[in-house]
Amino acid sequence: MSENSQNGFEQWLAETAREFPYPPQPDRSVSPSITHRRLTPRLAAVMVAILLVLGLLLVPPVRATLREWFSIGSVSILIDTTAPTPSATAVPLSNLPNLPGRTTLAEAQAQANFSLAIPDELGPPTAVYLHDGVGQMVTLIWVDRPLLLHVIDQNMILTKIGPQSYSEPVSVNGQAAYWVSGTRQLDLYDQYMEPIEGFRRVVDGPVLIWTNDNVTYRLESDLSPDEAIKLAETFILSP
């Protein structure tokens, strides 16, 4: 573009951009102002630290008012405060859920574009499912434990959960992980936001989500956080 042409384009661009119809700013209940006259930034920082230490931010009713996103590996999770409480109740994993793509472990291992090593202590899964769409997801269920494990490749999976769910950051083998609990309806979407059909379920057990070697794991169980993390770390140690 010549200098004259660029100047004209620049002028036109500025004039047109100036007319951009920005939407009205949504109201926010929390003012960005200093809400307490005697509260200084330093004092506020100290208070935030104290609150974190006391764990008050982890109290469910407090967290439930927050609208937030978090991502771990290829899984993004939206906590939607407007989502209704699921009307259905969760079906225990001991009743094998009816999921699509039932296959064998050997076939899933052959088809998956990631390593699917199962720790010996778990033994063979009761059921294996392979979703092979935009991305791949292998689902393994052990009904006797009971455990459900989604193993997800690098393609995005997004889940949207309701306000009755609570999340907290944890660590698996020194890596960031999340512990999610509370009753929620689980919907899975691929990276084009197409729902992964057949996986809609109500979940009320805790879930641990962690990553290893570009693969994301989502484990439903009735384990305590420590037990779940210990189990997750055996996956990392697996070849």
Partner: peptide, 8 residues
């Protein structure tokens, strides 16, 4: 974090 797909 949102990833473009969700916004789309």
């Amino acid at each position: 974090t949102l990833r473009r797909a969700w916004a789309r």
